[in-house]
Design a protein around this nucleic acid. Structure first.
Lengths: 159, 159
DNA sequence: ACAAGGTAGTTGCCTATGCAACCGACAACA
DNA sequence: TGTTGTCGGTTGCATAGGCAACTACCTTGT
């Protein structure tokens, strides 16, 4: 239906619009059901699974910016879904844990995540999902390599 | 190396971080080489290929917000890369075209796009790339379906 | 011809996101 | 023990991106 532009064939473009569509759909669901943003949801997910983590640990595990983690934690604390307790080993940081209310919400959040993943990839075979996962991982590896080589050689005529 | 959290297995999450990594890398390249943002680049790509399009048409082809298209066009015009000429058929809109400078830049932009796509998917077989493309497309289709069904049934206990 | 409704483009506002700078605390070492 | 460098966390700032409202213009129906 859409006229073929070079843009439509460009794989990074397809990746981008697909990711946006999926993220948007999921964000909408979490916002309307729980009033959670995506960063908040991610912190809840990790915290509910592992518990007692510092923000540094959360940053590492969610691959989000430390500021994003900080703000998400702040909101979760204000909403009474998580608490910070002092870290005896390191006075700079604190341990984060879900409150009972947080645990309860986590118990609703994860099934919804599973359900959405199922709905989004409904019709995919197990092989296709594995393939998709490994292709995504491979691309991330390439980005890291790409970052290293950093094409400083040829600047395509632009100084 | 990274401890396994449920988050890391969650496919929409992997999609999101992969897309961010790729987009970020590409955005950086276009910014440093041409001073173009991603929306500006997309408009340049489509315009260079088809020429004489209205913003409405550009919106349709890039799948971007009409405001994003508008702002990109404004910048391109200010930088002398594109011009707007009145549309005799419809007084509300105008036709956009690349200037000679815009055409020249387009001539450098597209090879870089091809080169980056190549570098990012280096090591992928043609089959893998096709597979990737069709998987992405399939997911987008699912998001559309998902949008329709809209899971209004069970609200997971949240009113 | 004119009223009502719709559409392309534009502007303003509000939120999300990221970086850089900063603060208090830890670690290494003279 | 004091000094220097580093690290976790926080805040402020600057930018990107989307939505809603508005203007100007087109279209349809009377």
């Amino acid at each position: 239906m859409q006229p073929t532009t070079p843009l439509a064939k460009f794989l990074p473009y397809q990746l981008s619009i697909t990711s946006n569509a999926v993220s948007g759909r999921i964000a909408q669901e979490y916002r309307s059901r729980f009033g959670l943003s995506v960063p908040e949801w991610r912190v809840m997910a990790v915290l509910g699974d592992s518990g007692s983590l510092t923000q540094r640990e959360l940053t590492r595990r969610t691959l989000m910016d430390k500021v994003a983690v900080n703000r998400a934690c702040k909101v979760l604390e204000e909403r009474g879904l998580a608490v910070r307790t002092p870290n005896a080993q390191d006075g700079r940081s604190h341990h984060l844990d879900l409150t009972p209310a947080g645990v309860a919400m986590h118990g609703q959040i994860m099934p919804l995540a599973v359900e959405m993943e199922r709905a989004l990839f409904d019709g995919f075979t197990a092989e296709e999902m594995d393939q998709f996962r490994s292709l995504l991982e491979k691309v991330r590896g390439q980005v890291r390599d790409f970052d290293d080589d950093a094409i400083e050689s040829d600047n395509y005529g632009v100084s």
